[in-house]
Amino acid sequence: MTGEGFSDFFYTAPDGLKLHARIYGEQISGHWPVVCLPGLTRNARDFHELALCLSRKAETPRRVVAFDYRGRGQSDHDPDIGHYNIGVEAGDVLAGLAALGIEAAAFVGTSRGGLIIHVLGALKPAALKAIVLNDIGPVIETQGFANIRAYLDRAPKPKPFAEAVDAQRRTHGADFPALGEADWARMVGAICRDIGAGWVPDFDPALVDTLAGIDFSKAPPDLWPQFEALAAVPLLAIRGANSKLFSATTLGEMQKRHPAMQAIIVEGQGHAPFLEMGDLPQRIAAFLDRAERQVQQK
């Protein structure tokens, strides 16, 4: 365990790639572990503050595992960009859990991470004890998806930290009026890395190429069958009030199809809400505690 509250864990993917995860908290606490899955170009650092909160909660400390997908963070880049897909990444997560000896856990998925959770529900449903979906559902709005593609740069130039912060604020500021200077700086620290010449996004630039052939005029296939298969799993959905990827209509339909689902709307934020801000860590922790007690009482 480092002085920052976590240890690094490296393991081998089914195809031999070296992958990374962060581990927070004790191995055995008596409570469900939590698995955190980031967005498309994000990494384990996205969950640092939330993971500290969950792993250090006095009454119910939890072991937290935050994954770097292949091509992100400290995981190896894949020479075959065709492997940058949610099916392969779901298999990588299962391999990581097997290496850690984790049979089941609560899952927190931001954006792409939530899509991977839907796949895990089909591959290994018993692994899902509870689910938190952060600004993602069975329907992806094409406008939001197109926006993501528009701001991803195939060959970004390194920037001094202050310029990198300003660039993020200019790109996302309209959707995130709730963020202050410290929040933007923390975001850059999470999604970028310092290569000496400046700060650059911390993912394989080839990942952008996987979006090149997508026709954004057509809606991607929905995941309603996979979502409905999660009906028995305690579920919390979080939506940024300004999100263009996860619509209020989809959230409402999810509540109809999963009546026990809980929902949180985060004002002043878009896609995807910062899970460390405001009272979100405490509300997520409370949701996990309630779900665990309910299961134990059955």
Rank of each mutant, 00 (worst) to 15 (best):
G3C: 00
G5V: 09
F10C: 00
T12Y: 00
T12C: 01
A13G: 03
L17A: 06
A21N: 00
S29W: 04
S29Y: 03
H31P: 01
H31S: 07
W32H: 05
V35H: 06
F47L: 09
E49W: 13
A51L: 01
L52R: 15
L54Y: 05
A58Y: 08
A66F: 07
Y69C: 09
R72M: 01
D76Q: 13
D80Y: 01
I81H: 03
H83R: 14
D92A: 00
G96F: 00
A98R: 13
A98H: 10
L100S: 03
L100Q: 03
I102D: 04
I102R: 02
A104M: 04
A106D: 12
F107S: 03
F107V: 03
V108S: 11
V108D: 10
V108Y: 12
G109L: 06
T110W: 00
R112V: 00
I116H: 01
I117Q: 11
A122I: 08
K124Y: 02
K124L: 11
P125S: 13
A127H: 12
L133I: 06
L133N: 10
Q143W: 07
A150I: 04
P160M: 06
F161L: 13
D166I: 05
D166S: 14
A167Y: 11
Q168M: 14
T171Y: 05
H172S: 11
P177R: 11
A178C: 09
E181K: 11
E181R: 12
A185F: 02
I195W: 05
A197N: 10
G198H: 11
D204Y: 02
A206Q: 14
A206Y: 04
V208S: 07
D209A: 14
L211N: 04
L211W: 03
A212M: 04
G213R: 05
D215S: 08
F216Q: 07
S217C: 09
K218N: 10
P221D: 14
L223D: 10
L223C: 10
Q226K: 13
F227T: 15
E228L: 08
A232W: 02
R239H: 02
F246C: 05
T249N: 12
L251E: 05
G252E: 14
G252L: 10
E253D: 14
E253A: 12
E253I: 06
R257M: 09
H258L: 13
Q262Y: 06
Q262H: 13
I264G: 09
I265E: 14
G270D: 12
G270Y: 11
H271M: 11
A272Y: 10
A272I: 10
F274W: 13
L275M: 15
L275F: 05
D279G: 09
R283G: 04
V295Q: 14
V295L: 14
Q297R: 13
